[in-house]
Design a protein around this nucleic acid. Sequence first.
DNA 1: AAATTTATGAAGTAAAACTACATATTTTTT
DNA 2: AAAAAATATGTAGTTTTACTTCATAAATTT
Lengths: 282, 282
Amino acid sequence: MNDILTAIREAHPTFKPSEAKIAKYVLENAHLVSELSINELANACDTSEASVIRFCRTIGLKGFQELKIKVAVSLSKQTKKLDGGISDEDDVTDVIQKIANFNKQAIDNTISLLNIDSVMRAVEALANASKIDFYGVAASGMVAYDAMLKFSRINIPCTAYQDTHLQLTSAVNLKKGDVAFGISYSGATKEIVEAIQVAKEAGATTISLTKYGQSPLVKTADINLFVSSEEAMFRSGAMASRIAQLTVIDILFILVARKKYNEVVKYLENTSEILSMRKIYK
Amino acid sequence: MNDILTAIREAHPTFKPSEAKIAKYVLENAHLVSELSINELANACDTSEASVIRFCRTIGLKGFQELKIKVAVSLSKQTKKLDGGISDEDDVTDVIQKIANFNKQAIDNTISLLNIDSVMRAVEALANASKIDFYGVAASGMVAYDAMLKFSRINIPCTAYQDTHLQLTSAVNLKKGDVAFGISYSGATKEIVEAIQVAKEAGATTISLTKYGQSPLVKTADINLFVSSEEAMFRSGAMASRIAQLTVIDILFILVARKKYNEVVKYLENTSEILSMRKIYK
DNA sequence: AAATTTATGAAGTAAAACTACATATTTTTT
DNA sequence: AAAAAATATGTAGTTTTACTTCATAAATTT
């Protein structure tokens, strides 16, 4: 926690009355704070300079100067959301910037949603799996495929099923120690929920990757991982969500690979060599 | 330009001697600046408080206080690159943070590489295409598939070919007004280069999406789009590059969709309806 | 209701930021 | 090369700001 505004928000219940007044004002007028003197702030909050100093100490700062700096830094880190979406007035540069921000935002939101415990449990299951099935359709099918590409490289037997019938026939044959990994942004794609259900009944450990919130898939799976549920822009279905999903796959892959590091290194080198033979240049 | 450290670096030649000393010190000890008093800074630079104030005014600030705040903000915005990659000492939270930063960085680097003119030419070609072929293998094949999903939604006839033989047989049948879109991170994947070559000879407009720099694919294609060529971490092949590639696809898609907005809206609504029928919940 | 603890602001202090001006340095002109 | 002009810089003083101390007020406990 090195974001002072969040720290203030969190600590709110523990404040004394005068401190609470200051906290409220700072949160609501964060942009002003770094321009005000301690005296001006005290007046604006109907309190005294001494209370402002006490407030700073309470939240763990040396003094008012540090508050001003920390608030400015905290504000600068908040990337501005593109609320209005993309309009006709935007020129090409604006559109590029907005989409980039949108995707970066999706990554940020997603990692702040990630439950560390769930991640570790998923990594544990994946690292020890004798076999992994990834299920997904459409955009999420692509993520399943990406996951397969990655985990194959470290010699973990895995398959990505985008075909809903194959998903079911594979799921029914899973065993204890296998992992079924269901990817569905909505968490409500009928076939994926069914496949995970079947996999679970067959004894496999089941993992879901969906948007944040309750959904049939979340209810079914043993371990649930979430991406930010922010709406897509421009009615375009999976926009940022697949970037967020891929980032989660990256995280799982790296953690699994690191867990098995010693045995893993040689597989990565092997696959690199094979691939470079297919290139025109080294 | 609202990054004070960059501003100072830029303005360096125009400084008076004493200001230059201060500029040098600030750039080299940026982390210290917000902890120092004007007096301490003046001493550290072997100059006077007055010169420090003058320095602040010269770079467009109100005074020393503002300098401290702006420097702290500027520093906080510099996302720390994970030079050392991921080590055994990193805990799960560190790994998550580093991967998120890595992917965000890839997006940033990529959009700063994007040539607006090339983007506009690509959009022009895609928007007017009677048919689009996307070619890619492995991770880039996934990106091709993603592109197909998107452009299909706005009723542009397109296909993603991951099979190298199908790529060639489709390419040879392309005509003027069609677009062949080759995706290859290295730009040196033999089959993709060949397919684009064939497509070009058949009369299609060819677009490449590769890492920045020269490559056989870049030499062949009519329009070249680049993603950041930063090295992958942890020997893991396509890590951030596919996120960057997907972001470029997003940009192209949005720009094409906007260009054809009026006719496009109804297609997006149609596809949304069809998809929601496959969900358990609305 | 009294005693104790806790919270708060007024007044005072020290230190910081900033200003004005005199002096030093550099540049230009003769 | 010397004088004059312009520019750059530091010293000393002023104002403002941040912070401290302590007395008083409010709340809590006994």
